[in-house]
Amino acid sequence: MNYRKLGRTGFSVSEISLGTWQVGGKWGDPFSHANADKILNTAVDAGINFIDTADVYGDGESEKAVGRLVRSRSERLFVATKCGRRLQPHTAEAYQPAVLRQFVEDSLRNMQLETIDLIQLHCPPTEVYYRPEIFGEFDRLREEGKIQHLGVSIEKVEEGLKAIEFPNVTTVQLIFNMFRQRPPELLFKEAARRNIGLIVRVPLASGLLTGKFSPQTHFSADDHRNFNRHGEAFDKGETFSGVDYETGLAAVEELKHVFGPQTPLAAQALRWILMFDEVSCVIPGASRPEQILSNLQAAELPALSAEQMQAVREIYDEKIKPMVHYSW
C-alpha cells in the first residue's frame, strides 16, 4: 500500500481507502454487521487505514461498525464521518450550530470514540458555505477535543472553492473520476496552494466504470441507481456521476479499447485518479470483502501513459463533458 498526506491534517493515509455507504451490504439491502465486520477487517489487513462513513449510512449502523473496528484493532486508523444529512428538510435554514453539535455528539456515541479524526459537512446547500457561524462551531468542538479536523463533502466545484476560504477547513471530499473531469482545472490547484487534503468519492461512477454493466443490468427498487437517475431523492450527480446511463455505457466500451482486457477497467479507473498528485486518497465502496482486494489492484498498476491519459480525456470531451462539466 502507498500512503499520502491528507493535507494539513498531517495524517498519512492509504491512497486507496474505504467508503462505507454500502459497507453492510448492497445498496437497498438491510445493514449486515457481520458483513460489515468482514469488509472492514479485510480492508485493514490489506493496509487501508482511512475509513469514511456518515451518520446517515445505515441510519447510524455504519458508524457503529466503524467504531467497533477501531476499538478492536491495534493499528492507527483514521475515521472520517459526516453530519448534516439527517436534517429534514435538508435546507440551509435547518443548518444551525447547536444542531450540528448534537450530530457530532451522536456520532461519537454511535462509534463509542472520544474524538473524531475528521468531521465533514455532508453536502450542505450552497448557502451554508456563506455562513461563518457554522464553521466557527467546529472550532469550539475541536477545542473541546470532540473533533480533530473539519472537512467538507461537496457537490459542486464552486462549493469547494468557497469552503477552503475558511481557515479551519482541512479537507474537501468530492466526486472525481473519468466521467467527472472538471476539478483539476481550478479546485485542485487551489487545494494544493492551501495544503488541503482531497478525498475522492464515487470513483467508479456508481459502478459504471467497472465495465460490468449493460442495458439489461437490473437495479433493485431501493437502489439509488434505479430511483435517483434524475435527482428524485438527492443530487443527480451522485448517481452515475450525473451521466446518462446509456451514454455512460457507450463511453465505457471505448475505455475498454484504450486499456485492453488484461486488467479490470475498475482498477484502471482508480489508477487514473491516482495519477493526480493533489489527490490524497480515493474511497471506493465495497459490499463484500473481495471487492476490497479487487480495488487494491490499482495500487500495483504502473502509471498510465501519456497516450492513455489523452485517450481518456478525448472520450470525456466527446461523450461526457456536455452533460456534466458545467453542472458540478
Rank of each mutant, 00 (worst) to 15 (best):
R225K: 05
P124A: 02
G160F: 10
R180H: 13
F135W: 12
H257T: 15
L293R: 11
C123V: 06
S305F: 08
Q310C: 06
L6H: 05
I116F: 05
L270Y: 10
S32K: 02
E159C: 08
G84D: 03
N110D: 12
K26F: 03
I164P: 04
L255V: 00
K319Y: 13
P167H: 14
S241P: 03
R142M: 00
I39W: 03
G19Q: 06
L249H: 11
F188S: 12
P89K: 06
E253L: 07
L174H: 07
A205N: 07
Y245M: 04
P184T: 02
V128H: 08
N49D: 11
G248L: 09
L274I: 11
P302I: 07
N49K: 06
W21L: 12
F50N: 03
I48Y: 11
E290I: 03
R142I: 06
K5H: 10
E63M: 04
L69W: 08
R288E: 14
L113W: 00
I164N: 01
H90N: 14
T115N: 03
G19I: 01
L204G: 04
Q112L: 10
K64R: 15
Y245G: 01
G25V: 02
P264C: 09
G19T: 01
E246I: 12
F11L: 12
Q173I: 09
T263N: 02
L187T: 08
Q181C: 07
A192E: 15
S294G: 05
E137T: 15
H224G: 00
E155G: 06
D55R: 12
R180D: 13
S241E: 01
W21K: 00
L293K: 10
R109G: 04
S305T: 15
E63A: 01
A205E: 07
C281S: 13
L118Y: 00
L161Y: 09
K321D: 03
L304K: 02
M111C: 04
G197Q: 08
L304I: 02
K212I: 07
Q297H: 04
F103H: 12
E253V: 02
A43D: 11
K321E: 10
I119V: 15
G242T: 05
Q88G: 08
